[in-house]
Nucleic acid binder design. Structure first.
Lengths: 334, 334
DNA sequence: TGTCGCCTTGACAACGATGTCAGGGATAGG
DNA sequence: CCTATCCCTGACATCGTTGTCAAGGCGACA
């Protein structure tokens, strides 16, 4: 800026005025400054300005997701970005791989960079460590998973309800041996989905005792192996409820290998790419990551604009997409 | 930091020393400062430090991709993030939707935030506008697409070669009417793939005149419509080469609708999620987005570490994945 | 015991910008 | 012609941090 001022033959403050479009600068001066700025390819330093600026906003947002190459996370990210773009806000994204240590580090990295707000998919047991930051006025919105040890806005799917919906769908198609394949138990949504599954069995008066329940699955490989193991017992399940997209994919692979994709029902939680093009099509309880991301970003901006209402939990509905795999009838018993 | 200093009863510079782990601070002082910092939940302001720090690094990277919710972009993003994490660098990501105006805006937003380096999937006709920034010493690495009007590092797939590989594969399976479905002609990789396709037909002595070539496809919907139209002529193609992942998905949908997925060969450029689980499996020329992202990030960091060698183009090999759709024989002619 | 040198510490300027404020020129009104 | 007002402009302090430098305290060594 000093250089631009020198080249234009004006003071730095005048350059600042022109750059920021402040009033009361003569047309001739504006022209001189703009010419100088163009000549020097000047880009103002937003961070330096921020140091002094009244509102102290960096026009920056921090987003924490499972992994930026997971389709669910990607959709959330894109929705957040679109909302941010309209306000000239840039987005930092970080992948957690559901590792609590990475969460702490990433949040800390964001705070040191003075992001205006945080949108988080948490994995740590408690987010109480964010309380001071929240008090300081940084909006924090949780997506996909609800916070623990802290009260703040959250935008989530109805996990237990969605899981119950999936389970009911299988029950209605006559299944009584419905295996549950789930993610790690330290993930809140996984627990919720597990609960929804158990509750629905209970409501239907179906014993939860005889059901095969496998938790702790986190990727395609472990899920595939677990599915293969399901069929190593005398009375294998006639239906499977898989509680996460990567788990669902592992199940599909295993069923193909066993040649059982047409005689074992499957409903997944969270949509699977091209799920409608597989044979059979994959019946899923689909979430709405676009809406989740958009609403979360809107919450953050509303808070920044002064909305001081109490923290709210927004539930984004899930939807059952019947595509074939969930409508397979139970095998006739031997 | 003033507050921490006051609470600890020391000077600000001493706090700075403790925070940055500089030597020559007594153990007692370190303890006092750390206690005060913990009490106040102090997070140093990285940007303020940067203003004064000698190296002027923000430990920040800007990444421009087609869209953060495209699987190819997501994989690149994740690889860049992993490389950055190891160096304490945070990543800004922006989606372009292949819109040149958004490119300019996003780059400008990154530069105003003083990113240490840029990793770009460009869409603008010329990137000459980056020359001053490059001279200023900001490393710029192009991924997926090569720069025009500017010389800088690039990490790309061999597009024409991959397209030729796909075309040759179809020729070897006996096809002579091979339709080309491609992306917008203003995208450099699309032009390259188109060229590879034509060149290979030429090498095989197959006339390019009678082939159906459709360009300007950019999403599933337009691709699906274009595919349906291919079959509205007397002698429809017996094989299709689709030059991009979304285009490939549109083709698959259309072929299903027509019931021709088992009698029309298909090879796609760029992998499709779950492509191996479809029936038939989707034969593709797969790129390696993980390697592209990783190598690009390594180039940026090497430049930041002082590597001043001439700009290099790194070509990441493509790989033909035979899964069924590309190995379908031509229909017997009437 | 005096001097030297090391360790520890803080005062101060500076990074690149903006908020505040005051000064100077032009214009209008008395 | 003088003065009040408005417009335009730049000097200066400041944001939160780090680089520089000098000073004070203490132990070691002659």
């Amino acid at each position: 800026m000093r250089h631009v001022a020198a080249l234009a033959g004006v003071g730095v403050k005048t350059v600042s005025r022109v750059i920021n479009g402040e009033p009361n600068v003569s047309a001739a001066t504006i022209a001189k400054v703009e010419a100088a700025a163009r000549t020097l390819d000047y880009q103002p330093d937003l961070h330096a300005g921020n140091l002094r600026r009244a509102d102290g906003r960096t026009r920056t947002l921090g987003l924490l997701v499972g992994s930026v190459d997971n389709p669910f996370s990607g959709a959330v990210h894109r929705a957040v970005e679109d909302a941010a773009l309209a306000r000239g806000v840039s987005v930092f994204a970080s992948s957690l791989d559901d590792d609590p240590d990475r969460e702490q580090e990433a949040v800390s990295a964001f705070l040191r960079r003075r992001v205006d707000g945080l949108i988080l998919t948490t994995i740590s047991e408690s987010q109480a460590y964010l309380a001071p930051e929240l008090r300081r006025g940084t909006p924090v919105v949780f997506v996909d998973r609800e916070p623990a040890g802290l009260t703040s806005d959250a935008v989530v799917s109805d996990n237990s309800d969605g899981a119950a919906l999936a389970t009911r769908h299988l029950l209605e198609h006559g299944h009584r041996r419905i295996a549950y394949l789930g993610d790690r138990h330290d993930i809140q949504t996984a627990r919720e989905r597990h609960r929804g599954y158990l509750d629905e069995l209970g409501r239907a008066g179906v014993s939860t005792r005889g059901q095969q329940v496998v938790e702790g699955l986190h990727d395609e490989a472990t899920s595939r192996a677990a599915t293969l193991a399901l069929f190593d017992v005398p009375n294998p399940p006639t239906a499977i409820f898989s509680s996460q997209n990567l788990v669902t994919i592992g199940v599909i692979r295993a069923l193909r290998e066993l040649g059982r994709q047409h005689d074992t029902a499957l409903v997944g939680f969270d949509d699977v790419p091209l799920g409608d093009l597989l044979e059979p099509g994959v019946t899923v309880v689909a979430q709405n990551p676009q809406a989740i991301g958009r609403i979360a970003a809107e919450r953050v901006f509303a808070r920044l604009d002064g909305d001081a209402s109490v923290a709210a939990r927004t539930i984004v509905p899930t939807r059952l997409l019947e595509r074939g795999s969930g409508e397979i009838a139970p095998r006739a018993e031997g």
